[in-house]
Each structure stands twice: as structure tokens, then as C-alpha cells.
């Protein structure tokens, strides 16, 4: 199988390798996505105390499921890295294995988050209840939506590896997917620290 093209990009004077152009473009998109998340974080931080007499973070957040979710996402980021190694080495079985484990861990994360949301909704802690809860559901829900889209993307990529093999376009898409997935884990680090851990200490 071909080695990754990024090791031998174009020389000076030639346009850079397409893998670099596509990767850099997607990198820029991810950073703009982080800027969007920073607005949601700022909104949430401004509204944390605006509970309107409703439940606050200390009453609503349970750290054990959050810790398990964090472990799932962190491990999935690691297995996504292993999948990238398999892709770059042209190892099809490794790619499927890494993709399957990444998918399973991501799906477990999403399932736990949906269960947590459902439990909050049955307690009457809906987005309409207070500005704090509006900010919470927007921020955490936006991250969860990203994870859901990532799972869909991963499934599509596995189908493309099966149908098209490791052609350069598929390798570029897999590179972009791994960037996306690692970026989601970085956002989750900010999320569990600011929303859940800091939310649970001031109660």
C-alpha cells in the first residue's frame, strides 16, 4: 500500500500536496467550530447562576456517569489514533477494528448523555425552565450533536474503505475525520471541567 503522501509533499515553487491543503482547510473549519463553542461556553458561564428558582448544577449533575462518559470519549480518541496508524500503514483489518471500537465507544458516550438528558427532563429540568438550563442544553447538546454526526461520518468512512479501498481521497477523508474526532474530545475536556466539575463544586 502507498505510504502517506504527507511525507513527500511538493518542493518549493510547486503547489503543496492536496493532503496538506485539504487537512489545513478542515483544520481551519475545526478552529472556527471551536470559536462557535466558545460563544456557547461564554453564554453558559454568564447564565450559570440564572436558575430562576429551578434546579442548579449541583442538584442535577451526577459525576459518576460523567466520569464514565469522559473515559469512553478519551479511549475513543485513542482508538481513533490507532485507526489512523492502521490507515497510514495500509492495514485494512486494523482500520476496521479501530473504527469499530471508536464507534462503539462514541455510541456508548452518546447513549449515556441521552439517558442523562432524559432523566433531567423527567425531573422538570427542561431547557424552558431557566436561562441556566437553556445554556446547558444548548452547549452540551451541541457537543452531543457533533458526536452523533461524527458517528455517522465514521460509519460512512468504514463503508468507503470497504467499497473504495485506501485511495487518496478516502485517506484524506479519514484524516479529516480523525481531526474532527480529536477536536471533539478537546471540547469535551473543557465541557466536563467547566460545566460538570465546576458546576458540582459551587452548590
Amino acid at each position: 500500500m502507498t505510504t502517506i503522501a504527507a511525507i513527500a509533499p511538493g518542493r518549493h515553487g510547486l503547489p503543496p500536496d492536496k493532503r496538506i491543503v485539504v487537512g489545513y482547510g478542515f483544520w481551519t473549519f475545526l478552529l472556527s467550530d471551536m470559536v462557535m463553542f466558545s460563544a456557547l461556553f461564554a453564554t453558559y458561564a454568564v447564565l450559570t447562576r440564572a436558575t430562576a428558582g429551578g434546579p442548579g448544577g449541583a442538584q442535577l449533575f451526577h459525576l459518576t456517569p460523567v466520569a464514565i462518559e469522559t473515559g469512553c470519549l478519551l479511549l475513543s480518541s485513542f482508538t481513533c489514533g490507532l485507526m489512523t496508524l492502521a490507515v497510514n500503514g495500509g492495514n485494512r483489518t486494523g482500520t476496521w477494528l479501530g473504527g469499530a471500537v471508536t464507534f462503539a465507544l462514541g455510541a456508548a458516550f452518546l447513549a449515556m448523555e441521552i439517558r442523562e438528558f432524559a432523566a433531567m427532563l423527567t425531573l422538570g429540568a427542561t431547557p424552558q425552565r431557566s436561562a441556566f438550563l437553556s445554556g446547558f442544553f444548548t452547549l452540551v447538546g451541541c457537543h452531543g450533536t457533533h458526536v452523533g454526526i461524527g458517528l455517522l461520518w465514521l460509519a460512512v468512512m468504514m463503508a468507503q474503505v470497504a467499497g473504495k479501498g485506501f485511495r487518496p481521497s478516502v485517506q484524506r477523508r479519514l484524516l479529516c475525520f480523525s481531526l474532527f474526532w480529536h477536536a471533539l474530545d478537546i471540547i469535551w475536556v473543557a465541557l466536563f471541567s467547566i460545566v460538570y466539575l465546576m458546576g458540582s463544586i459551587d452548590g
Binding site: T3, A6, R11, I20, G23, Y24, W27, L85, S178
Partner: peptide, 22 residues
Amino acid sequence: TPRDRAPGDSREGPGQSELRAY
């Protein structure tokens, strides 16, 4: 000469050192 590298790609290429980084 310095060359550009796609974000997410490691300098070493696939191999042991990259696994070690992860």
C-alpha cells in the same frame, strides 16, 4: 528545507514512535 505538514500527520510517519506518542 522545511516542508509543510498536514494537521494531524506526524513527522515520523506510521510506526513505533507514532504509537508511542498516542
